[in-house]
């Protein structure tokens, strides 16, 4: 276990921070799980952060001129260079501290918020570079499994069989034909001190993971599952239920990778069938039983692999 995390006690339902670094009045859709994840992450981090935000839903809904929802310093940059700009901000803070123009013992966290497109597809190169150089920053990927902001186009993180506008089901196609890209595994392969996956349904788990990511020295990556009622064709009130079902059906397992060692933070001993998760969403309604069986097999195999990693590493 890392020594930075030894003193960290964790949040509990009784000692939740009162401050809200993200202001209400933002224009997210009704029942948006992504903005909920963003709010919880910022609540855990507190006011001493510099937020770097890649293009995506969270940038659009929080900053339509002349309003902004951010109560913390915030910089918006293009899709591909969120991690690169965060490394620059972190390096600038280091220089200011060395020159004595910034209090040396004041802790400021640099945190990146990007969508799954900005992380897994377009920004992967900048992310890889920043992780490899070892900057002290937190990268939070809010994964809603497609380019929702521009009108539901497929991304690398779109799951198998999902309907999007660029992977439509029909006679020759059944939706997305490739499996979801495992971005947390790519981040963990860089050998960085902290990688985690989280979902807003387990809010204490999410807040603790984000806080831990900020506490470690060096780069940290948190992959947050964020339900999107608009893009997935689900009910707004079902967002939390979907986020919970994704964990309970083993589709999105919750784990931490601390210095290369895998820890499963929520073990699912009695998994629910994936059908229960799929049938709540319109993007999966065209799937046949054969496809669902295929998905179930893949999910079981992936979970088995994760269990083995947690055992032997």
């Amino acid at each position: 276990m890392l020594k930075e995390l030894a003193k960290f006690k964790g949040f509990s339902a009784k000692n939740l921070p009162k401050e809200e670094p993200f202001a209400p009045g933002h224009r997210a859709c009704q029942g948006c799980g992504e903005v909920l994840a963003l709010r919880l992450a910022l609540k855990a981090l507190g006011m001493n952060v510099i937020a770097v935000s890649a293009t995506g839903c969270m940038e659009i809904i929080s900053s339509p001129f002349p309003y902004t929802s951010w109560r913390v310093p915030w910089i918006h940059i293009a899709f591909e260079n969120a991690a690169a700009v965060a490394s620059g901000v972190e390096a600038a803070l280091k220089v200011l501290k060395r020159k004595g123009r910034f209090p040396k013992n004041r802790r400021v966290d640099v945190v990146v918020f990007a969508g799954d497109g900005g992380t897994g597809d377009i920004g992967l190169q900048a992310l890889s570079g920043a992780l490899e150089r070892g900057h002290d920053f937190v990268y939070i990927c809010l994964d809603n499994e497609a380019y929702m902001n521009t009108g539901v186009q497929r991304s690398g993180c779109t799951p198998y069989g999902a309907m999007t506008t660029t992977s439509p089901p029909g006679k020759k196609s059944f939706g997305q034909m490739t499996w979801k890209k495992n971005v947390p595994a790519i981040a963990a392969a860089h050998g960085i001190p902290y990688v985690a996956t989280a979902t807003p349904a387990f809010f204490l788990d999410l807040m603790n993971k984000v806080k831990k990511a900020a506490l470690v020295n060096g780069p940290a990556y948190v992959h947050v599952y964020a339900p999107c009622p608009t893009g997935w064709g689900s009910k707004g009130e079902d967002s939390i239920r979907l986020a919970k079902l994704a964990v309970e059906t083993r589709i999105f397992p919750l784990y931490e990778v601390i210095e290369g060692k895998y820890y499963i933070t929520r073990k699912i001993t009695k998994p629910k069938p994936v059908e229960e998760y799929l049938k709540l969403q319109r993007r999966f309604r065209h799937l046949t039983e054969e496809h669902i069986r295929e998905i179930q097999q893949r999910v079981d195999a992936e979970y088995e692999r994760l269990l083995r990693l947690a055992e032997c590493l």
């Binding site: 809200e20 209400p24 029942g31 948006c32 903005v35």
Partner: peptide, 29 residues
């Protein structure tokens, strides 16, 4: 209070969480 995406819930003196309808989008979470 913690699951509201619009930060609509606030605690009153008695400890109940009361919705502030200024920002509530009515998502039903």
């Amino acid at each position: 209070y913690i699951m509201c995406p619009d930060m609509s819930y606030n605690q009153d003196e008695e400890g109940y969480y009361i919705v502030d309808l200024t920002y509530c989008k009515g998502c039903g979470i």
